[in-house]
């Protein structure tokens, strides 16, 4: 058997590897920028084709494929059931940065039936897209703040933590299906 010293050294080395490895994984974000071309002349007329209110199951990809020309995403972690989830899709940096409602590619209000909502948009162009959403719990049509902090659920593409404010580049996603999380501070 290894000596006590060897054992302690072994545990120390293992701890370093585990923390280092986890940090590496933490720095490894899911890819979201694989669509590079953006056709600005593409139609702005996005249509909401489908609102599915269920958790995606294993095998959905095979049995219910999202076609390559759709933008589809699921918002997970909805903890409160009141209000609607308001989803906004931006296609350019300026409107995204200024939350300019005139620059929206798509806007949709989704009712909440369970902890997740899924939406998919057809004919929305090729992207890249930046997505923001919030849970309009009090029904005032806007994200309600208390001081500087939202008291309603909110989130968006590229948001790793409730405090991140990603740039358009960081937030941009391509066509296909994505998963986002609803964040709550209160």
């Amino acid at each position: 058997m290894p000596s006590f010293k060897q054992t302690v050294a072994g545990i120390a080395v293992s701890t370093v590897i585990v923390i280092g490895g986890a940090y590496m994984a933490y720095e490894m974000p899911s890819i979201s920028e694989y669509v590079v071309s953006y056709d600005s002349s593409s139609s702005n007329a996005a249509t909401v084709s489908e609102i599915v209110r269920e958790t995606p199951e294993f095998g959905d990809v095979a049995t219910n494929p999202v076609s390559g020309s759709d933008l589809s995403f699921t918002i997970h972690g909805i903890e409160r059931s009141y209000g609607k989830v308001i989803v906004m899709v931006y296609g350019d940096e300026d409107s995204y940065r200024n939350y300019d409602p005139n620059g929206l590619l798509a806007y949709e209000e989704l009712s909440i039936n369970s902890g997740t909502v899924t939406v998919s948009f057809e004919n929305i162009g090729e992207g890249p897209f930046a997505i923001t959403f919030f849970q309009d719990e009090d029904g005032n049509g806007d994200l309600t703040l208390q001081g500087e902090y939202p008291i309603e659920g909110y989130g968006g593409s590229g948001m790793k933590t409730p405090y991140s404010e990603p740039s358009f580049e960081k937030a941009s996603v391509g066509l296909g299906s994505h998963n986002f999380k609803m964040h709550y501070l209160k």
Binding site: V18, A25, T161
Partner: peptide, 16 residues
Amino acid sequence: WTIETNWATVAICIIL
């Protein structure tokens, strides 16, 4: 930390 779920992070998790 919040570690995202993709096959790369899953592979790291398997090693750890």
